[in-house]
Design a protein around this nucleic acid. Structure first.
Ligand SMILES: [Mn+2]
Ligand SMILES: [Mn+2]
Ligand SMILES: [Zn+2]
Ligand SMILES: [Zn+2]
Lengths: 145, 145
DNA sequence: CCAGCACTTTAGAACAATTCTAAGATGTTG
DNA sequence: CAACATCTTAGAATTGTTCTAAAGTGCTGG
């Protein structure tokens, strides 16, 4: 359903370069490094800090400010979306399609719930003058007692 | 359904004092002032900052640190719950029952969606070793284009 | 091929929300 | 009321994030 065939294959530099250009972003060393980490075979949920650490670990060296800039630019370009489930940090999600989340509160981890089979009934219609931008379901989990 | 009959009447000092004592909290001047603002006839969504300003406006004078302390103590006592919809600030909700939210992104305002009629189908069962603490639905609204 | 300009990166400062510290104030109890 | 535990609070500290402005890099027109 998602239109990005290249997402499922390991993201190579050519793909990324094209994707960045299409988004109006120059394919810089830093953006390509982050893109490789983000747009691999599986979807991911990262924070700026976690992605920065990961980038450093694979030898890319770039600043945390650049990670923030890049995450926001990718989000603006529709390559990422933000997920807000914790007051202390912002998560960025490579899955921009319709889906929901489990949130492991103890671990601070997100897991996708595909949107396909989830239905939400009985919601009131949006107040006049407004429209729905998105409906988000978060299932908060804790370790079984 | 909620067990707090006193919530619907204007919260008086006697009620609040009892409620605080029951929660193991001394009914101090500050906690009573905040309790009066919070536990009036309607449910409310506040931030520490908004509640502090409101308290100052009605002549109570207490520090922002006390507002934070009190909000957390009230939450621990089950008198409030937190709602996380914005990375920049935490909302506290006097409605501790089962319900969901509209979030006016432009305004930073929350409105309740009663839980009674909303049904969510097709959610996977929680991963083993975990249990669901709560299922939250947030309907993000934007001004109609 | 560049030169040259726009776009990027980044160190470090700045910010905003929240938490912490530790010292003085206040509620409660005998 | 004394005495102690509990509370409050100013101000410092922390954390996640954004901003600033200066140095670096990608791209294009000649
Ligand atoms: Mn914070
Ligand atoms: Mn913040
Ligand atoms: Zn996701
Ligand atoms: Zn609410």
């Amino acid at each position: 359903m998602r239109s990005t065939g290249s997402r499922t294959a390991s993201a190579n530099k050519v793909d990324l370069t094209a994707r960045l250009r299409a988004a109006g972003l120059r394919p810089t060393r830093q953006r390509i490094a982050l893109g490789k980490l983000l747009f691999g075979p599986h979807d991911r949920h990262v924070t700026a800090e976690s992605l920065h650490q990961e980038a450093v670990k694979v030898g890319a060296h770039l600043s945390l400010a650049t990670v923030y800039n890049t995450l926001h630019q990718f989000t603006g370009a529709g390559l990422l979306r933000q997920v807000i489930v914790d007051g202390d940090k912002t998560y960025f999600d490579t899955n921009t399609g319709d889906h929901h989340h489990f949130y492991y509160e103890d671990e601070g981890l997100l897991a996708d719930i595909p949107g396909d089979h989830v239905t939400i009934d009985g919601l009131p219609r949006p107040p006049s003058g407004t429209e729905i931008e998105r409906v988000e379901v978060v299932v908060r989990l804790k370790a079984r007692g």
